[in-house]
């Protein structure tokens, strides 16, 4: 049993210190994942809180069929979807929109030479499903099987999502680079 699974077992028995240890171990990556989808630090903090409250309440339901980390990311994934649903803002279709990078602040970002800004901006142009898949692949170095576990869909769906997401991401980034060098 890995360290996270051991902690979760203790959490299931009401051990608050184990919950605190699990929080310290996973709080940063889970928060980063949530924030990558909400882009709001306050909302992200609230969702993170809800996620670990859910861990506290549901630890005994963990069946050990996946990694603890994957299970907790799955809770976070669903919490954010619930938040989106309440706002009726989420587009859950899996079609690939034709997107153009027409951000008014693109020139500012390029002038400052901030690669992270470019990547953050272009990630923000992706749909939630696509952004989540890319975030899990590149922030958390998950495999497609693990991402599928988090999002609760078949692995083939994740392959399709990542394939299209990276195309859109690269197109967006190259568009910003092209505009940096005036003809």
């Amino acid at each position: 049993m890995d360290a996270h699974a051991q902690l979760l077992t203790q959490v299931a028995h009401g051990d608050k210190q184990a919950l605190a240890a699990l929080y310290r171990a996973l709080e940063k990556p889970v928060y980063r994942f949530i924030h990558s989808r909400l882009n709001d630090p306050f909302e992200s903090s609230d969702v993170l809180h809800d996620v670990f409250m859910e861990v506290w309440r549901s630890a005994s339901r963990f069946e050990g069929r996946s990694k603890v980390q994957t299970w907790i990311f799955g809770i976070a994934y669903r919490k954010v979807i619930d938040l989106h649903r309440k706002r009726v803002q989420q587009d859950v279709t899996d079609d690939i929109p034709e997107q153009e990078d027409d951000s008014p602040d693109a020139a500012t970002c390029l002038a400052a030479g901030q690669e992270a800004e470019h990547v953050r901006h272009c990630l923000g142009t992706l749909k939630d499903d696509h952004r989540s898949a890319i975030s899990l692949a590149f922030y958390e170095d998950m495999t497609y099987a693990e991402i599928a576990e988090v999002q609760g869909v078949p692995e083939g769906t994740i392959k399709t999502r990542v394939f299209h997401a990276k195309k859109l991401l690269l197109r967006c980034l190259s568009g910003r680079i092209d505009r940096r060098v005036p003809a």
Partner: peptide, 26 residues
């Protein structure tokens, strides 16, 4: 390489406060 400013110990304090009000039951 992006820095993440997560709630950290403040978030943990909030969690421990609220956990105290709810039993760990499923």
């Amino acid at each position: 390489s992006e820095e993440t400013y997560s709630p950290g110990e403040m978030g943990l304090a909030r969690l421990m406060r609220d956990v105290g009000e709810q039993p760990a039951s499923a």
